[in-house]
């Protein structure tokens, strides 16, 4: 794998740091007028998802990480692995629980998700920004309340729990923003 000098640091560059593939979120050059230059970078560790700050002595080189994002449709879970398929080549990829743990509750069959591969193995699965899911359980709610004040919890078919307005009922399909877990609206069937 190629190495990258601090001069090549920029947002989006994937590096191996502490044995883990990382994505640079921000890079800033810190150069005292008469002193050693440094790079201050904010990075996301791609396996753990942690965001950390690191500094480098300018001019040093860091190993690149063989990381790429691909778009695959979610198929099914066999109890151990979550299976995804490329809709054009029909090639399938299986992700383990560690890779999907943050997105399990948003996985909807046939939805196209982003899989991050490191050395061709999936290390993270990002669901689409919006998913549509059926409500399996929620309190009937108060009659006459249509303003949606406060709302109530609703359990969705995947097990996710979101706050919905009081007028939304069991059996309805709703749209949810997976980045925030917020209710967006009802979906007409």
């Amino acid at each position: 794998m190629a190495t990258f000098s601090t001069n090549q640091f920029k947002a989006g560059l994937k590096l191996m740091i502490d044995g883990e593939p990382c994505n640079i979120l921000e890079n800033e050059n810190v150069k005292p007028g008469k002193g050693q230059a440094f790079n201050r970078v904010k990075i996301r560790k791609l396996v753990s998802g942690k965001v950390i700050e690191k500094t480098f002595k300018s001019g040093e080189s860091v190993e690149g990480a063989d990381v790429m994002d691909i778009e695959l449709a979610y198929l099914y879970n066999d109890g151990e692995f979550w299976h995804f398929m490329n809709n054009e080549t029909f090639e399938q990829v299986a992700a383990d629980e560690k890779a999907v743990v943050d997105s399990i509750k948003w996985l909807v069959e046939n939805d196209v998700c982003t899989l991050t591969l490191w050395n061709n193995n999936p290390i993270a699965v990002t669901p689409p920004n919006f998913v549509e899911l059926e409500i399996t359980e929620t309190d009937p709610g108060l009659k006459g309340d249509t303003a949606g004040t406060g709302g109530k919890p609703a359990t969705l078919s995947t097990g996710a729990v979101v706050r919905v307005p009081l007028f939304v009922q069991t059996g309805e399909v709703i749209k949810v923003d997976t980045r925030t877990g917020d209710y967006v609206g009802r979906v007409q069937k």
Binding site: V30, P32, G35, Q36, F38, R40, T55
Partner: peptide, 8 residues
Amino acid sequence: LLQWLFSM
């Protein structure tokens, strides 16, 4: 190291 502490 002094420059690092000073800058950061």
